[in-house]
Structures are given as structure tokens and as C-alpha cells.
Design a protein around this nucleic acid. Structure first.
Lengths: 156, 156
DNA sequence: ATATTATTGAGAATGATACTCAATTACATC
DNA sequence: GATGTAATTGAGTATCATTCTCAATAATAT
């Protein structure tokens, strides 16, 4: 398994694109970022590294990072696109607490099986899926005094 | 089951908000809209109805429509939020063709079961979920000569 | 070393959505 | 039906993330 830098360099070469210092610094930045991040987070991390790659270049580089399989768009939150590193990580889905904003990652084998089943039925070839569950995390349930009533909708 | 208008009127009254002609015209517009739509689509439908509700009012009304359970945010496409009517409809998920953009709706009971299971494990209380599958629809598979290899990732 | 072509930064442009504010209106109460 | 009050409206402006433009620079192949 190649390192992030090597993988990116290889990807660029494949497409006759150039491996510039700016692109290297961006790779260094995303490697350091944890969890979910947006373009601005990458830009701030670059500042921390004393790099002065422009925000425009960050935006220009994101599609390359996505195409090279290093990161992927995962969540839309408050009109922002969030990314996360996916190279060398197993895929997972998300639960988002609508009270505190906490993001919980989970992996479930059955989701993949279900996807296969559904795609087969509709003659669809999937390249990816995203399952997002919104609701309340344990802490917020306690805080807000929400009672657990599994998936039963309250009548109104 | 109340009509869209009655449901909205009731919702507004509950909150001491006013049922204005503009809001009524917006309701009439969304009732006529099919499938997935955005704020601009509502605005255009209003124009067709010879209503001159402003776009600002459309944006202001959308959260009310969401809170009243008449529509819901369903997909993010090209940085736009898409909505769809959900009142009196059973919930479903989506497959989106990344070639032609076609949206296929599907309902699968097991998705709900899976959600319960996952939420139970993580002590999470779900209010909603969204499963989106991206890939290629039948027509585009044929057009692009894509072979079906269910969910096996090609090695690279 | 040179030529070619991609890349960069800066700033302007875009486009969806939100805000501001004065004028208007819905509705509860009289 | 008239009145008061708070909600609502349209128009225009503001915001904010993202994309584009363009001239200057730099990475690679030869």
C-alpha cells in the first residue's frame, strides 16, 4: 500500500499532471486532518504548516484528491460539503445528532448486502452508497429527556 | 387525512402564524410540482399560476413546509437542495444515476429494520434516515457498455 | 537548455440562500 | 365592523462557498 503522497504522485503522473509543492503541501495537510473536514479546514491546516497555498488551489485540488481515491465527499452539513480520508480505510456510514452535531461512524455488513439486493432488483450498478441516520445521541436524549421508542412514529 | 392546504393552515394556527394568500399560493404550487424540486422550481410554478410571490418568501416558507411535514429535504445535487412532497406518502430511498442524473425511488422494508438494529446498538434515537445509492441505471450501463459485477470492486 | 503545457495566486464573478427594513396585512379583541 | 399588534411581505442588499479569469511562473519531456 502506497503512502498518501506516493499514491497522489502516481495518480498525477498517470494523467500527465504535475506534482507541485503546493499539491504536496495539501496532501500533508489532509493527512494531518482528523474526521470530517471542508475546504476551509484544509486551508487552515496549511496555515498551521506555514504553507501559503491559496484557497483557490485548495478548491482546485479537491477534485483531484477525490478522483485519486484519497478522500471522498461524505456529508452535507449546513450548506457545506464535508470530506474525509478514505484511502486504506474501510467504508462506513454515519449517524448525525441533530441536537449537538456529533457524528458517529458505523460499519454494518448488512448494509452492503442490502445494497446488492436492491441494485439487483432495479438492474442498477452501484458505485457507492451513503446511509445517513439523523436523530439524537445518547447524551442529548438524556439532556432533552427523550424516551426511546424504536422507530415508532408518534401519532399526531 | 387533511388536504395539504388544511394541514398547513392547521400547522400555522398551532404556532400562531398567519395563513396568508402568499402561503396558500405556495401550497398550491408545491401540490402541482412533481418529483424533486428546489426553491427556484417553486418560484417558477408560482409564475405559471400568475402568482407573484417573491423568491424571498419562497425561501422563508420552505422551513415551514418542512416543519409541518408536507415536504422534506431529500437530495443534494450540484450544490442545490432538492425537496419532495412527503405528506401522505410512504417513505422511500433513492438511487441516482451518475451518468444521466435519473433518480429512482425505492422502498425496502429491510432498510427500516437495519436502522432499528444499528440505532439500538449505538443507543441512538433516529428521527429519519436517508439511503442514497449512486451508480449507473440500466440504460446508461448499456450505453457505456458497463458490465454488471455486483458490488465487487475492481482491483486497481 | 528549451519548449510546452499545467499550475499558481489574486481578485473578480457567480449563484444559492439569508438578512434588512419600511410598508402592509391577518387576525384577535372590542 | 373598527382597531391594535405582531407577523409577513417585496425589494434590494448582503453573505458565503465555490468557480472563473488571466497574467506570471514552474514542472517535466526532449
Amino acid at each position: 500500500m502506497l503512502s498518501y503522497k506516493e499514491r497522489f504522485k502516481y495518480f498525477l503522473k498517470e494523467r500527465d499532471l504535475k506534482y507541485t509543492p503546493e499539491r504536496e503541501e495539501i496532501i500533508e495537510a489532509i493527512v494531518k486532518l482528523q474526521k470530517h473536514f471542508d475546504a476551509e479546514d484544509i486551508y487552515q491546516q496549511l496555515r498551521k504548516q506555514k504553507s501559503d497555498v491559496s484557497l483557490a488551489t485548495v478548491y482546485r485540488t479537491i477534485p483531484l484528491l477525490v478522483d485519486s481515491g484519497l478522500i471522498m465527499e461524505t456529508l452535507h452539513c449546513r450548506e457545506k460539503v464535508l470530506y474525509e480520508k478514505i484511502y486504506n480505510k474501510r467504508r462506513h456510514d454515519h449517524m448525525v445528532c441533530i441536537n449537538c452535531g456529533k457524528i458517529i461512524e458505523f460499519y454494518n455488513e448488512d448494509v452492503e448486502k442490502l445494497q446488492d439486493e436492491i441494485c439487483h432488483k432495479y438492474q442498477f450498478v452501484a458505485t457507492e452508497h451513503r446511509l445517513g441516520i439523523k436523530g439524537y445521541c445518547k447524551e442529548c436524549q438524556d439532556k432533552l429527556n427523550i424516551k426511546v421508542t424504536h422507530s415508532k412514529k408518534e401519532k399526531n
